[in-house]
Amino acid sequence: MTTQIHVSRFPSPVGPLRLATVDDQLVHLDFDDNEERMHSLQNRRFRQPEWREQPNSAPGTIIEWLNAYFSGVIKPLPWKDIRLTGTEFQQQVWQGLTGIPAGEHRSYSALANTLGNPKAVRAVARANALNPIAILIPCHRVIGANGTLTGYAGGLERKAWLLDHESRNLKRV
């Protein structure tokens, strides 16, 4: 059976976003200029998916979360409307990312330590790079051990913007 992936867009202040859903659950969120990355990652996860542009196909809870985030409010993630597909280790890393508070950052080695696997720094970095749901799963909060901004699929300028936005503006609800 062919999996249908519906794609809609969200106009964020840091650039337009693409949201991909399967069965009314978010499977991918990325910047509009990363369409090739989105297709590459999701074509590995779903066999021969059928891609369809469908405005307003993203779950309302995801849109509400994004609107709140860009307005300066961090809400709990709407997990029931998110479908993360990856290896057990990737899932651990992505869950670990959600434990980094907004406005803070961690190094790859600190994240590996938090996950109880201090020697897995490179594997943590790779799983971080394969995060299919940018911003909600905050891979932008991981930086180099020396404090420099490193490796962000959306570009380092966007990573800096997101970190600055969080440190200046966000309130938790």
Score class of each variant (00 low, 15 high):
residue 87 T to W: 12
residue 151 G to W: 09
residue 69 Y to A: 06
residue 4 Q to F: 00
residue 150 T to A: 04
residue 21 T to W: 00
residue 95 Q to F: 02
residue 69 Y to N: 06
residue 141 R to M: 01
residue 131 N to C: 11
residue 123 A to G: 08
residue 64 E to G: 03
residue 105 H to A: 08
residue 86 G to F: 04
residue 148 T to C: 00
residue 22 V to K: 00
residue 24 D to Y: 10
residue 59 P to K: 07
residue 51 W to V: 15
residue 94 W to N: 03
residue 57 S to Q: 15
residue 19 L to R: 01
residue 125 A to E: 14
residue 116 G to D: 08
residue 84 L to D: 10
residue 93 V to D: 08
residue 25 Q to A: 07
residue 173 V to K: 12
residue 168 R to V: 07
residue 64 E to K: 06
residue 63 I to Y: 04
residue 144 G to T: 10
residue 59 P to L: 06
residue 122 R to D: 15
residue 122 R to F: 05
residue 102 A to I: 09
residue 136 L to R: 09
residue 134 A to V: 11
residue 26 L to S: 12
residue 148 T to H: 00
residue 31 F to S: 11
residue 87 T to I: 14
residue 6 H to F: 04
residue 63 I to C: 06
residue 109 S to K: 14
residue 165 H to A: 05
residue 128 N to Q: 09
residue 33 D to Q: 14
residue 101 P to S: 03
residue 157 E to D: 13
residue 20 A to Q: 05
residue 137 I to K: 05
residue 158 R to C: 06
residue 17 L to G: 02
residue 22 V to R: 01
residue 62 I to E: 05
residue 98 T to R: 02
residue 169 N to G: 09
residue 9 R to G: 08
residue 97 L to K: 11
residue 91 Q to I: 15
residue 74 I to H: 03
residue 82 I to G: 03
residue 39 H to N: 03
residue 127 A to I: 11
residue 94 W to V: 04
residue 108 Y to G: 12
residue 91 Q to P: 08
residue 115 L to N: 09
residue 19 L to M: 00
residue 153 A to G: 09
residue 34 N to M: 11
residue 120 A to D: 14
residue 45 R to G: 02
residue 38 M to V: 14
residue 155 G to S: 08
residue 26 L to G: 13
residue 30 D to S: 11
residue 8 S to D: 15
residue 48 Q to H: 14
residue 52 R to Y: 13
residue 29 L to C: 13
residue 26 L to T: 15
residue 122 R to G: 10
residue 170 L to W: 03
residue 154 G to C: 06
residue 53 E to R: 08
residue 53 E to F: 07
residue 50 E to S: 09
residue 80 K to T: 14
residue 118 P to S: 10
residue 75 K to M: 12
residue 78 P to Y: 06
residue 161 W to D: 10
residue 85 T to W: 00
residue 124 V to L: 02
residue 25 Q to P: 04
residue 7 V to L: 03
residue 76 P to W: 02
residue 112 A to I: 13
residue 67 N to E: 10
residue 152 Y to D: 12
residue 100 I to Y: 01
residue 128 N to I: 14
residue 118 P to Y: 08
residue 123 A to R: 12
residue 116 G to S: 03
residue 124 V to G: 05
residue 103 G to Q: 03
residue 87 T to E: 14
residue 11 P to D: 07
residue 141 R to Y: 04
residue 20 A to M: 02
residue 101 P to D: 10
residue 100 I to C: 05
residue 89 F to P: 14
residue 129 A to Q: 05
residue 96 G to W: 01
residue 171 K to C: 11
residue 80 K to E: 13
residue 144 G to S: 09
residue 51 W to P: 12
residue 56 N to C: 12
residue 166 E to R: 04
residue 8 S to T: 15
residue 90 Q to C: 13
residue 49 P to H: 06
residue 113 N to S: 14
residue 171 K to S: 13
residue 27 V to Q: 01
residue 36 E to K: 15
residue 99 G to N: 13
residue 31 F to C: 09
residue 47 R to P: 08
residue 142 V to M: 01
residue 72 G to T: 08
residue 18 R to I: 05
residue 101 P to A: 02
residue 126 R to Q: 13
residue 10 F to N: 05
residue 92 Q to I: 09
residue 129 A to T: 11
